[in-house]
């Protein structure tokens, strides 16, 4: 292919940005700037990784769910997450990277996943807190992505968001039941809220001043609101839900600000945030060990499936002759 001149590229880029500004969707076969492709691979694969790593903390409790109804709901939820992972990987593959390459990036630590999944699930109430808070924060992050500029991502997100909002209600419902239960159950719920509240706030990302990707992402509609705005939205939405079921948000600085029409809240422990992001959270090692272990132990199975498919193909060809 003939090398394009700088001017030609600039021209294409301008047309590209104009399309996005007109709210047109970019499709896999369309021309796109290399940076757009790379940024999308990074964000979409990170999203896919978060889904499959996110299966682990909740997967912990499938075998111990307290009732059959809860067990079935939890299984279905974790299965949904696997499904999200599957179609997010597929959507990312349209940008010219294979699922194996993405796994490789995850397993070697080159690609990140949501840090929240590096926290342990130590009681049943954590299943409620994760659904309510973690999925709640995820939805706030993700709903704007239903209108993002890259077509396959936007379409995947429509479905993901529908299911996530169902998960959030399911999680909140677990919390309601605990909060209205025996004192022991209420303690479980409060304890889970205490442990998951701050990490959930951190899910909305670093402060705007420290967020490096925001401006470009806004232009490409990968982001519509800043991290701080999203965080405020999450807090304002969640505090009344906690009150409603008689739980206390673990923040002594939390106070309604009449003037702003929002809650003021305390300082987030960003040292903890960066510690977990950099790989030193309570379960980073366990999560990666589980993922890498499943992948390596599954190699002989995947090899067998490939080999079998080839054998079948050869037999078919022989029959045709």
């Amino acid at each position: 292919m003939r090398q394009m001149s700088e001017e030609q590229i600039k021209n294409l880029e301008n047309q590209f940005e104009a399309r996005i500004a007109r709210d047109e969707k970019i499709e896999p076969k369309d021309w796109m700037p290399e940076k757009y492709r790379k940024t999308h691979i990074r964000q979409m694969s990170q999203h896919a990784h978060s889904e499959i790593v996110g299966m682990l903390p909740e997967g912990n409790w499938i075998s111990r769910a307290p009732t059959l109804r809860r067990k079935v709901a939890l299984l279905a939820k974790v299965q949904d997450e696997a499904g999200h992972g599957l179609y997010l990987y597929s959507a990312t593959e349209t940008l010219g990277i294979s699922r194996e390459e993405m796994y490789e990036q995850l397993h070697t630590g080159k690609a990140k996943y949501s840090s929240i999944f590096n926290y342990p699930t130590i009681t049943w109430a954590d299943m409620g807190a994760i659904g309510w808070l973690v999925d709640g924060a995820a939805i706030i992050n993700q709903v704007p992505l239903c209108n993002t500029s890259y077509g396959p991502y936007a379409r995947a997100m429509v479905r993901v968001c529908k299911e996530e909002s169902f998960h959030q209600r399911q999680g909140y419902e677990i919390m309601i039941k605990l909060a209205n239960g025996t004192p022991e159950q209420k303690d479980l719920a409060q304890d889970a809220l205490n442990r998951w509240w701050w990490p959930s706030l951190m899910m909305l990302g670093p402060k705007d001043a420290e967020s490096i990707h925001t401006e470009q992402s806004m232009k490409w509609k990968l982001k519509r609101k800043s991290n701080d705005d999203l965080r405020q939205q999450f807090i304002d939405q969640t505090v009344p839900q906690a009150k409603l079921i008689g739980l206390t948000i673990p923040d002594s600085d939390l106070k309604w600000n009449e003037e702003r029409g929002s809650y003021d809240f305390g300082e987030i422990n960003w040292d903890e945030f960066w510690q977990v992001v950099k790989g030193h959270g309570p379960c980073n090692k366990e999560r990666m060990k589980a993922r890498v272990g499943a992948w390596e132990e599954g190699k002989w199975v995947r090899d067998a499936a490939m080999e079998h498919a080839e054998k079948k193909q050869i037999r078919k060809q022989k029959q045709a002759i």
């Binding site: 499959i52 272990g293 599954g298 190699k299």
Partner: peptide, 14 residues
Amino acid sequence: GELCGHGPSLETDI
């Protein structure tokens, strides 16, 4: 159910 999240591939996991 014990296998959820630990299958040899995402498809078999599901």
